[in-house]
């Protein structure tokens, strides 16, 4: 899933100042699962904004709503009526959701309430970690199923740098050196010889360095 975290309240407070009718809009998929912007966080945040407005003597109304996914036009369009009376939306979706709102509602101020963090897994409730960088050209077949693009601090493709110590990455004792993990797994799979080959330079163009990405499926599109 895409993971998100809610922005610091101070930042949200600043960006939402001065709007008389603000809609706090949750996104019930990735954002909800990240505990950043589902119904529950909408309630909490809207309450907090109302309180903050009250303390600062600002008159304003804060509405609450949530839709299944802010990255789908059909869902987004369902809030059109509610939005009509608002002057701004605080979207608790990922950047994609925020932008789709901006596109669908050209006359409204759309504000991001969350930071989109990464593509990752839930390690346990409340702990997520990055697993995929969306590089557009998966190499996991060559790296024992563990991704050095997303998980090596230097995106090395030919084994660990000289900073790998006790299984940890040189950047922090809290970060696993993915190359250590790759080597351990290859050893278990009896495939250590895969390390001998020099991994060629990577084509980064599908990773977004070739310009904004777009996919078109001719068989599906209308």
């Amino acid at each position: 899933m895409i993971t998100l975290e809610q922005k610091k309240f101070e930042e949200i407070e600043k960006m939402t100042k001065g709007y008389s009718r603000l809609l706090v809009l949750g996104c019930e998929t990735c954002s909800a699962m990240s505990f950043a912007g589902g119904q529950r966080q909408v309630e909490e945040l809207a309450s907090a904004i109302r309180m903050a407005q009250k303390t600062s003597g600002q008159e304003g109304e804060v509405l609450e709503d949530a839709i299944a996914r802010q990255c789908e036009p059909e869902f987004v369009d369902l809030i059109r009526d509610k939005l009509a009376g608002c002057d701004a939306v605080l979207s608790l979706a990922c950047g994609a959701g925020v932008q789709l709102l901006s596109e669908r509602f050209p006359d409204k101020v759309i504000l991001p309430g969350c930071n989109t963090t990464f593509l990752g897994v839930t390690e346990e409730l409340g702990v997520w970690s990055e697993r995929c960088a969306g590089c557009g050209n998966c190499i996991l077949d060559k790296t024992a199923g563990l991704c050095p693009i997303a998980r090596c601090s230097k995106q090395l493709l030919n084994g660990p740098c000289g900073g790998s110590m006790n299984g940890k990455c040189e950047i922090s004792k809290d970060v696993d050196c993915v190359w250590q993990l790759i080597i351990d797994r290859l050893a278990r799979l009896n495939r250590l010889e895969m390390l001998e080959e020099i991994f060629p330079v990577k084509d980064w163009s599908p990773a977004g360095h070739g310009g904004p990405r777009k996919m078109v499926r001719e068989d599906l599109k209308s």
Partner: peptide, 24 residues
């Protein structure tokens, strides 16, 4: 060389390039 990670330097907010690695 690969180089020490930017996180330890005096510009920790820098974007690391790492387009290719030291062996490449």
């Amino acid at each position: 060389l690969s180089g020490d990670h930017q996180r330890f330097g005096n510009h920790p907010a820098a974007k690391g390039v790492y387009d290719i690695d030291s062996i490449q």
